[in-house]
Structure formats: C-alpha cells, structure tokens
Amino acid sequence: MKLFVTVGNTRFDSLFKALDKIAATSKHEFIGQIADGSYIPDNFPSFTFHNDISAHIKEADAVICHAGAGSIFRLLENEKKIIVVFNTDRVDEHQRDIASFVESESLALTCWELAHLEELIEQLVSFTPNKYYKDDFHKVDNIIDCLFS
C-alpha cells in the first residue's frame, strides 16, 4: 500500500519516530507531512508543509493522520481509508472527541497508543469503513438574518 501520513499544522514527532521504525522493515510505501516537527524520518521521504496536499491524498491507498478535525473531515469527504492517530505529544485533550467519534462510528481505524500502530496498518488492508454521512450546515439563513436585518 501507498500510505500518506499527515499531521496538519501540529507537529507529532513521536508518530514519525514510530513510523520510521515500522518503515525500515515494512512492505508498504510511506510519505510524510511532518509540519514543524524536528524528527525527520530516515526510511521514507517527508516534507514540512505544502499548500496543496490533495495530490498526495489522491495517490495514496490510505492515509495515516493526526486526530485533527480539519484533516479527518477532508479525508472522510474524499472517501479515504484512514488511521486516525491521537496526538499523545500534545498536553491537551483536544483531539480526543473526534478520535472517539470516528472510532465509535467505524469511519476510521483509531490509534490511541503508538505501540499498536503497526498492527493497525496491517488491519487497514481488510478494513472497510462505514460511509461518512454529513448533515450539511443549514443555518446560514439564521446567521444572515441576525447579522444583516
């Protein structure tokens, strides 16, 4: 599998350290977007930021991403198979809600501890996520009325 790894705007060095170890012996191909992280993987190519990562997303068979909502919703809207990794380097719990949500709805595989990541990558091959359903934003009229009437 071709796996694209993205962490949006938030560095996640522990993830790339873990993946670097996995990539050393893995049959899968990895490419990483590491944000402002200080750990540069030796065993697969990486870059910091890019204005448009859509080509990487499109080319990948699956994506490993941090539990940032912007990244996750974009990938779900693009019907990608994903492993969502809870960012244990952060001091806050801001990613917990969405990681729990995608796990409970079987929209993605969720990794809470990096020790399980290798096993989850193998599970990804046979994983079929549930279809992502989005109740589209429908309160623009109320907002316009409130602001301009």
Binding site: G68, A69, F73, E93, H94, Q95, R96, D97, I98, S100, F101, I143, C146, L147
Partner: peptide, 11 residues
Amino acid sequence: IYIESWSRFYT
C-alpha cells in the same frame, strides 16, 4: 455569532 468547533462531540 459563535460556531463551536466541528471537532467537539462530547466535551
């Protein structure tokens, strides 16, 4: 007008 983040489901 405030729109709570789409990342919030339970907290």
